[in-house]
Write a protein that binds this DNA or RNA. Sequence first.
DNA 1: GTGTCATGCGTAT
DNA 2: TACGCCTGACACG
Length: 268
Amino acid sequence: MPEGHVLHREARLQSTKLVDHPLRAESPQGRFTTGAEAVDRQRLITIEARGKHLFYRFENDLTIHVHLGLFGKFRHQQLPFPEPSANARLLLSSDTDRVHLAGPTTCRLLEPDDVDNVLRRLGPDPLCRPVDGASQMASALGRRTVPVGRALLDQRAIAGLGNIYRSELLFLAGLDPFVPANVVSSDDIAKLWDLSVSQLRSDERSGRIVTVDPAVVGKTSRSRLVRDERLYAYKRHGEPCRVCSDTIRTAKIDDRNIWWCPSCQAKN
DNA sequence: GTGTCATGCGTAT
DNA sequence: TACGCCTGACACG
């Protein structure tokens, strides 16, 4: 489930196990052998997340850059380590813990300048709490005439949102996904930013995306929500809106599905 | 068992 | 706009 909250959670959890240790780095699959050898037995200095990107910086100044894409997955393993799967792109192991990476879109070695180049292409990340995040986002969206539902996936406008968050955040903000981004009011963009900050922080802690207010479905806490009760719009095509009972609709924007409630999201 | 789809994104056309 | 890449879950027969 690789939207931004997942990468920050991975950075946090992996850091407690791997940072400050000299690590064994291997690529059983063989597609990252040279990169793994370049950091093998080096001490890991930091693991940092920005948007959907992860950066492992080693003491020799080399950085492993990971982007999970649609399919990438991390597994956390402890001694005795199980046999790695045949498609394990990267294994990072301390004496006691191992992180197993399979299926990433990106897993490559970067020099410090290359890291800066990747970061320059990313907008503000709600989980990094930049003080001017809302205004950076407003300035990026203000230049776009595409639907706001499309602009939210542009990682230069705001880094870390994926297809689930774009449907859910637009629902929470009450915004019509098809309104041009440059027509959305600055108040509504500020609202989208604030919702992104609170939503991703909460989901980073729990490890899952839950946007529904538990009271709306008659529950007393987030943790009591079952799988089908966690979201307002995403993949709920044809079902009644949890707030107003109108029918949730779906359409494609740039060949990716978006879901919305035509009544709750009439604002533009 | 096979086919389809998916929480992503870069490149080519 | 279309395709390629990478993997796993699920529907269907």
